[in-house]
Each structure stands twice: as C-alpha cells, then as structure tokens.
Simulated assay, not measured.
Amino acid sequence: MNRKKSIIAGSVSLILILGYFLFFFQKKGSERYIEAEVKRGNIEITILATGTVQPENRLEIKPPVAGRMDRVLVNEGDKLTKGQIIAWMSSTERAALIDSARSQGVEELKKWEDLYKPTPVVAPMSGTLIKRNIEPGQTFTVSDAVLVMSNRLTIKAQVDETDLAQIKINQDCDVRLDSYPDIKISSRVERIAFEAKTVNNVTTYVIDVLPLSTPEFMRSGMTANITFFVKNKENVLTVPTEFLNYENGKPFLLVKSAVDNHKEKKVEVKVGESQGKNTEILSGVEEKEKIILKVTEQEQKKSNPFMPFNNRSKKASTSGSSSGANQRSSSGSSSPPPGP
C-alpha cells in the first residue's frame, strides 16, 4: 500500500513539474508589419530544363570491303561537304599486290600503283567529322566504323509533361553548358517528340533545341541547362508574391491608408502572371500605393528561472506563401500598423 501511495505521489509531482514548465514557457504571438510599394516592372515566365548535346544525325562511315588505309585527309572537327574525298584505302588484294611490287623496286611499285588505283572514301553528307578511328597503315574489316560524321549538334532537353503545353516550335530559348556556364547560346525549339519517356513514374518529352550558331567549343555529350521563354510582360504593375492574401479563394492586399498611417484596408485585387517572386496585378491597386505584410513573432512568455541566462528567444513566421497556388488564408482583420 505504501508503495502504491509513493507511485501516486511521484506521478502527481511529475504532473505539477510539467505544468510549471509549460506555464513558464508558454508562447504568445506578437505582430509586426513589413511595408512594400506597388511598382511597375517586367514579368518573364520561363521553363527550365536540362539536356545533353547530341548529334542530330550521327553517321558511321564503314568501308565497302576489307583492306588497309593508305591516307586520311581529315581530322576531328573538320567541316566536310557531301562528296568530298576524305581518305584513300586499298582492298586486301591491292595491299598485298603493292607490298609485293615494293619489294621488287621503285619502278615495279610505280607501275602497279598506276595500274591499280586506291579506292577513295567520300563524305556521304555535309557536316563535321566527330570521330577518327583509323590511321594510315591500319587494316580494317567491313564492320569497322573508320570515321564518324554528324550534320550538326543539337540539345536533347527533357521537359515534364505538365510544361509541354507551353513549348512551341521555333520558340526562343537560351542554352548554358555546364562546361561554359558564363556563355549564353541563343537557340530555338526545332522538334517536339511525339512519344513520351516515363522514368520512376515521371513522364517527360524530348525537345530538340537547335543553336542559332553552334560555338566551336560545343561537344557531343556535354550537359546543358535550357531556359525556354514562355511569356514576357513589360511595364506592368507588380507586387511581391508573399504580400498576397487569400480569403475564400479570392486574392487581396492590405493597403496602407494614405490619410492615416496607423490604418490599413483590405483591397481585393485581380492577379495576372507570376514568376514566383513577383506577381502581376491587373486591377485593385495603383502604382506607388503602400502595401503591408503582417508577420507574427513568437516569443517566450517567461524565462526558465533555473537557467543562468535570461534572454528571450524570438522566432518570426509568416502565414503567407510565395505563389498563388499555395494560397495564404486570412480572416482579413488586423490591428493597426505602427506609424513611420
């Protein structure tokens, strides 16, 4: 019995101690106000994506017969035209015959070189040589890709299906390569894939982006960051997105009274485009009007008497959000802001 009473007494003591600490550390909120101004500015809507530099058409040049390479006339990076002779090769039979004639002297070699001409290797299309896999004197088979060409380099961008409706053919965009992040490459959308790719339940479409002028340093396989320009509005009324409040799904702003700095009024507004940080205002407020954001500060009611320090800690929080999709609810009532 005594043990049971001791347990009960201990439990009651613990509850009292917890209640004491909860009482002394109970937090209450205080409000302060941040002020901004309705301004004119530009709203630019963009879509960001990543991609990889790849040849639009990658063509492997393979010899028609097995043999040996006599001369290679081009190097990687050279610009080629369709029909241009880029190498000379000998079939296995010619290579054996020329080697035999060379052992018999210069005159015999010249005779057979004039009678049995080498075979030219020509460029099948105009473009750039991106890979040279052969050197003079090396042998090859019909399955060996001795040279590789591409007509031009493009960027294969992965765009989420939710953004696809905002991507159009010939749309302007900028490309920045991870290898050269400070250089902007003006480009345009050339092709939008008809078939989607789904990886880890994320559906994307491949967008072919073509540089208006391909820089010399661009290489196949480079990682690229693409900015698609969807819409650009200039000289429109804007406010910081975090200042927008929502009540019953309708946006409003707290506008500072022009007569009394200690008062504000709730003004319903019509919003337009948003770029995240700033939002376009179509109607409801005028340029240079002062708007207010109410911020709640959480502070300790009383310090712990057992702690050696008696400082108060404060934590500020706002009930708003930075976009219209994540709406900030508010009752619309507030106490007057402090004067300037």
Results as ranks from 00 to 15, higher is better:
138 Q>E: 15
326 N>I: 09
303 S>E: 14
254 L>H: 02
236 V>D: 08
314 K>W: 07
160 D>N: 12
166 Q>W: 04
73 L>Q: 05
45 I>L: 12
55 P>H: 04
224 A>H: 01
169 I>Q: 14
67 G>K: 13
69 M>I: 06
84 Q>M: 02
256 K>F: 01
58 R>I: 01
191 R>G: 03
131 K>W: 02
52 T>M: 06
267 V>L: 08
257 S>I: 03
324 G>D: 08
263 K>D: 04
199 V>A: 10
313 S>G: 06
135 E>D: 11
323 S>W: 07
140 F>G: 03
236 V>E: 09
235 N>C: 05
277 K>G: 11
227 T>D: 02
291 I>Q: 01
294 K>W: 00
333 S>K: 11
255 V>Y: 04
219 R>L: 13
38 V>D: 04
313 S>R: 08
295 V>N: 06
159 V>H: 00
270 K>G: 11
294 K>A: 09
285 V>Q: 10
183 I>V: 14
14 L>S: 14
156 K>M: 10
301 K>D: 13
274 S>K: 03
281 I>V: 14
262 H>G: 12
328 R>A: 14
26 Q>M: 09
264 E>G: 14
52 T>Q: 10
298 Q>M: 15
178 D>L: 09
135 E>C: 05
135 E>R: 15
75 N>F: 02
116 Y>T: 06
67 G>T: 09
89 M>Y: 04
13 S>A: 15
288 K>D: 14
24 F>Y: 10
264 E>P: 01
290 K>L: 10
54 Q>F: 05
68 R>L: 05
231 K>V: 08
109 L>P: 04
174 D>R: 11
128 T>K: 15
48 L>P: 08
19 G>C: 06
157 A>T: 01
127 G>N: 01
23 F>A: 15
173 C>V: 01
16 L>A: 15
57 N>S: 08
73 L>G: 01
198 T>P: 01
237 L>V: 03
173 C>I: 00
144 D>T: 02
162 T>P: 00
240 P>F: 12
61 I>F: 00
334 S>A: 13
186 S>N: 15
122 V>H: 08
240 P>K: 10
54 Q>D: 05
116 Y>W: 14
112 W>C: 00
265 K>V: 12
83 G>V: 01
